[in-house]
């Protein structure tokens, strides 16, 4: 559905000196610097996938999304939407995509929501019948029907995002791009949005690409994660695979009856407090059951707890890794 091939994007930025002297100097001469925002990305997204696109601020993920949606022209490389180069055949290719950028709206601020939809209906040449059908589906998922007559400027952020999502789906795109859709939303709206993504994916088979900083979004929605940092891909795979790769260990906390610190050849002791000892061990080396069995042969065990590496740890580690 989407092919990203050998994608690069460079920006030229002009630097300005500090203070009055620097500003005066900049009047006559400006220094240019090249910043490589995206530095060779290659991946493929299949039909019906939900892909989480994550990375820290300034990692190049926004730039990548903007190239994938035809907003930015790549310095080199290409993005194909359903086989069509989106830079060269923008007008044709964007018919297949819907875009929602969390902080911006494509709705007319001053008018009723339905007026904006009416314009989109003309722009995408949507038949009245199809339009009403799509609107019904969207109403059943998001409850957008009651908002149609409300001016956009009077809407809450949650309602506005619902409006934007509907607007992006009116022409039934094959791919939906969401750039930080849950940013600033309350719990109820977040829930509605995640439900929406799952349902359009299930009902219409829409491919969804989203960027987010919200771990809840990732955990609930993304079968596949693409982690980028410094403009290069750090990880690509489903969540459990990435966990397996980045954090192939678990932590076992064991509470003994006495203040003892038994050791194990294949486990590293992380911390000791009162009667609790925390062991870190590689999943490949042994199972938690084996470790418990070995330890209980040394001392009687009162209680145990197993901790998986948290998703935020995974992402933090992935961000910090340098290739």
């Amino acid at each position: 559905m989407i092919t990203v091939r050998d994608l690069y994007k460079e920006y030229r930025v002009t630097e300005r000196g500090r203070g009055l002297g620097g500003t005066l100097k900049a009047l006559f001469k400006q220094e240019e610097k090249i910043i490589k925002a995206v530095n060779g990305l290659d991946f493929y997204v299949g039909k019906g996938e939900i892909v989480g696109f994550i990375g820290p601020n300034g990692s190049g993920k926004s730039t990548t999304i903007k190239m994938m949606t035809g907003i930015l022209a790549p310095t080199s490389g290409e993005v194909l939407i359903d086989g069509r180069n989106i830079t060269r055949y923008r007008k044709e290719a964007v018919r297949d995509i819907g875009v929602v950028f969390g902080q911006r709206t494509q709705l007319n601020w001053d008018l009723r929501l339905e007026e904006s939809f009416e314009l989109l209906r003309h722009i995408y040449r949507i038949e009245k019948k199809d339009y009403r059908e799509t609107l019904e589906v969207m109403d059943s998922i998001l409850g957008v029907g009651e908002l149609l007559n409300k001016p956009v400027r009077q809407m809450s952020l949650g309602q506005r995002v619902k409006g934007d999502l509907t607007a992006a789906m009116l022409h039934s795109p094959k791919v939906l791009f969401l750039d930080e859709p849950t940013i600033g939303l309350d719990v109820g709206s977040k829930y509605a949005l995640r439900k929406f993504i799952k349902e359009i994916n299930a009902i219409k088979g829409t491919t969804v690409i989203l960027t987010t900083h919200d771990l809840g979004d990732i955990q609930e929605l993304c079968e596949r994660l693409i982690i980028i940092n410094g403009g290069v891909m750090m990880e690509d795979g489903n969540l459990s695979e990435i966990v397996e790769r980045i954090a192939p260990y678990r932590t076992l906390a064991v509470e003994y009856y006495d203040a003892v610190v038994p050791e194990h050849a294949k486990a590293e002791i992380l911390s000791v407090s009162d009667n609790v000892v925390r062991y870190k061990f590689m999943k490949a080396d042994m199972t938690a059951a084996e470790l418990i069995r070995d330890l209980s042969e040394l001392y009687p065990i009162k209680d145990v707890g197993i901790e998986e590496a948290g998703i935020d740890d995974i992402i933090r580690i992935a961000y910090e890794m340098k290739k």
Partner: peptide
Amino acid sequence: YKTRIIRSFTYKFEVY
């Protein structure tokens, strides 16, 4: 007063 002077010098194209 001083910050405003610096800000006013900032845009080269606009100035010319």
